[in-house]
């Protein structure tokens, strides 16, 4: 039994301390992910808090056949969507550069971060699939479960996302070569 499964078992028995320990393992990763989905840093923090509360409240419904992170990300995505409401436009269109929480967390000196361009190039769901695959190292099956999409949809859209970002990456490389 791993440390994580021990903590899960204890949390399922009602231990808030065990769940706090579990939350500590995931909160930075979740916050980083939520920053890409929310309009401000404060929203991302609220979404993180709501996600962890909902996860603890419904910890009994967690099925150990799934990875815990898959279950947690499912809740996080729902919470981030709830904060935005059903009729809002794509999150990339809402932000200006000054208030973009993702931009704020990347040092000014650094070159263009691919995730920033990914967000303006890809739609929300494809972006999330790409994030879960390449930042979280999730399997295609886990991603399709998290997004409540079919495996075929996930594969096709990961491929499309990759193509779009490869083009982006190559054009940045060409630009920097051109400027020396």
């Amino acid at each position: 039994m791993t440390d994580e499964s021990k903590l899960i078992a204890a949390a399922q028995a009602g231990s808030a301390d065990a769940f706090c320990g579990l939350a500590r393992l995931y909160r930075e990763r979740l916050l980083r992910f939520l920053l890409t989905r929310c309009a401000s840093f404060a929203d991302a923090e609220d979404a993180l808090q709501d996600t962890l509360i909902a996860a603890f409240r419904y910890i009994h419904s967690y099925d150990s056949r799934w990875r815990f992170s898959t279950w947690l990300y499912r809740i996080a995505i729902r919470n981030a969507a709830k904060l935005r409401g059903p009729d809002t436009v794509d999150i990339g269109e809402l932000r200006d550069e000054e208030n973009d929480p993702l931009q704020q967390c990347i040092a000014d000196s650094e070159t263009q971060n691919l995730w920033v361009s990914a967000r303006s190039t890809l739609n929300d769901e494809v972006f999330t699939a790409m994030w879960l695959r390449y930042a979280e190292d999730m399997s295609v099956n886990d991603i399709s479960t998290t997004l409540d999409r079919s495996v075929s949809w996930t594969k096709v859209n990961l491929m499309r996302g990759r193509r779009a970002l490869e083009t982006q990456m190559n054009s940045v490389a060409n630009q920097s070569e051109a400027y020396g």
Binding site: E28, L31, N113, A118, E166
Partner: peptide
């Protein structure tokens, strides 16, 4: 691309 994406995700600095 995968390496670049992984590295870029790690460059997003967040602290609780």
């Amino acid at each position: 691309l995968a390496k670049q994406l992984r590295a870029d995700a790690e460059r997003i600095e967040v602290t609780v």
